[in-house]
Amino acid sequence: MIEKFTNKLSLRILLGLFVLVSFALLFTFFVLFQTFNVYLFLVVVLGTALGWVFFEDSAAKTLLFIASTSAGTILVLIAVFLFLRGFPAFQRDPIFFLTGSEWHVYREIYSLGPMIWGSIIVTFGATIIAAPMGVSSAIFIAKFSPKWLRSILKPAIELLAGIPSVVYGFIGFILLNSAIMDYFDISNMGQYFAPSIILGIMALPTITSVAEDAIDAVPEHMEKGALALGVTKWQAIKEVTLPSASSGIMAALILGIGRALGETMAVTMMIGHKTAFPSPLFDIFDPGETLTSLIASQIGEASGQAVEALMGAGLLLFLIVFVLSVTSRIIQSRLQRRFRRG
């Protein structure tokens, strides 16, 4: 009996199970009942400490495993809670909610049609600006630039992504919005046009760095082979490297579109906040609203059904970006697999 108890393996498993169960309980209580049980927390901390002292190896492994599930846990929590709060808005009248043309807080009519359309216009404009520039600067960084320049350019592009979006929004609002208002002689400050330009600049670093990785991942011997046949470097890039990296570049574009779609503050500061379709439908100089700017500008004062509708908008946004990033991930991993097989 005593021997069995001091058998380290079973003791280790017992302690591990005990701590894991209390952690699971603690987590469940926190998520479901909104309480943070201090006693359970102490049990978890003490048990972990004990485990660390006596069986450091397996305790470390278990802790690391729990850490590796954290990202997934957060993602699942986001999905579940947005779904719980946002789904009622879809449930009432899904078709009207997604395609209707009115959003009136006072009359309690909520439909996301104009905002979805606005997001599409702004993202499209941003992509037109960011895609060609992003891909060609990726080609430059990966293929044409000398090494020293490359070591400057890559951090600089990273920095472009690091400038806070409020600052982009503020500078855009002060300079671009008023300049466009003056030049095109328009009476309204915020249109779809100005945020598209700023969003294009903001989506560019994502596209550039992912596309650059993709171009860099193409094995050098492929291009060398082409060069040996006597073609110029650009011909080798165009006929060999770019086709091989095309799926990676595709993934970069998708990620860039996701960035532009989800960007919030810059759009909120530069757009006109008019929750209706532009007329005519393609008028990029009309004031408008996108999904993100709708949420950012209205959630502070919203109550009741409006909150549900905004959560619905958030859920929609989350789902679209989720699908986009999973797609780009699948494309990327396919690319990797192809080159690993040679």
């Binding site: 947005l82 990620l255 960035r259 779609l261 989800g262 919030t264 949420i295 946004l317 989350f318």
Partner: peptide, 9 residues
């Protein structure tokens, strides 16, 4: 790639 406003929500 989850939009920052979704994190806020």
């Amino acid at each position: 790639s989850t939009p920052s406003i979704v994190f806020g929500l």
